[in-house]
Design a binder for these strands. Structure first.
Length: 153
DNA sequence: CGTCTTTGACCCGCGC
DNA sequence: GCGCGGGTCAAAGACG
């Protein structure tokens, strides 16, 4: 499978930013100490800088539970939680790349406790960008894996 | 009616 | 001890 981390690493490594590994300190939230080490995955997604919403629809469903602007990035960072399962410890952080406002960096924290809502049996859906008729959000669906190219416009 | 998004405020941790 | 920053939760509103 594609190593998004590697790809992402290569891209970010060139510019180097404060997007390295975040100290996953289990503070404030008394979550189960099943997995002391959460899996961190970073994905680079190309999208439009005009996209007012950072709702990235991958193979899972996410529910945005917060948004904050950090000092490191002028762009707002969005926090997502897996809304597919009630006990999904997976969290996702999405933020626009500082070096390229047209690139979204999604940081996945943990693994899913349930199967994907979308059956990847077919796998005939490479990469698609679906813009909701409401025009309020843009959905990136790369169910096919590795179809998106963070480089070249 | 249910679901999801959005914004603000609050809390905690760390540093100095 | 105080300040800054980051992160999360909660409530309200909107839309399907």
């Amino acid at each position: 499978m594609l190593s998004y981390e590697g790809l992402l690493n290569d891209k970010i490594g060139g510019h180097d930013h404060h997007f390295e590994n975040q100290s996953f300190t289990n503070s404030g939230v008394g979550m189960s100490m099943e997995e002391p080490r959460a899996k961190l995955s970073r994905v680079c997604i190309r999208t439009d800088p005009w996209d007012s919403s950072l709702v990235v629809k991958d193979r899972y469903e996410w529910r945005k539970y917060g948004q904050k602007v950090t000092r490191d990035n002028p762009s707002p960072r969005a926090y997502f939680k897996c809304s597919c399962a009630p006990s999904c410890p997976v969290k996702k952080k999405v933020q626009r790349a500082a070096y390229d406002r047209s690139i979204l960096i999604a940081t996945y924290e943990g693994e899913h406790n349930h199967g994907q809502p979308f059956s990847s049996t077919i796998g005939s859906l490479p990469s698609f960008i679906s813009i909701n008729p409401s025009g309020r959000m843009i959905t990136l669906d790369f169910t096919g894996t590795g179809s998106f190219r963070p480089e070249n416009v």
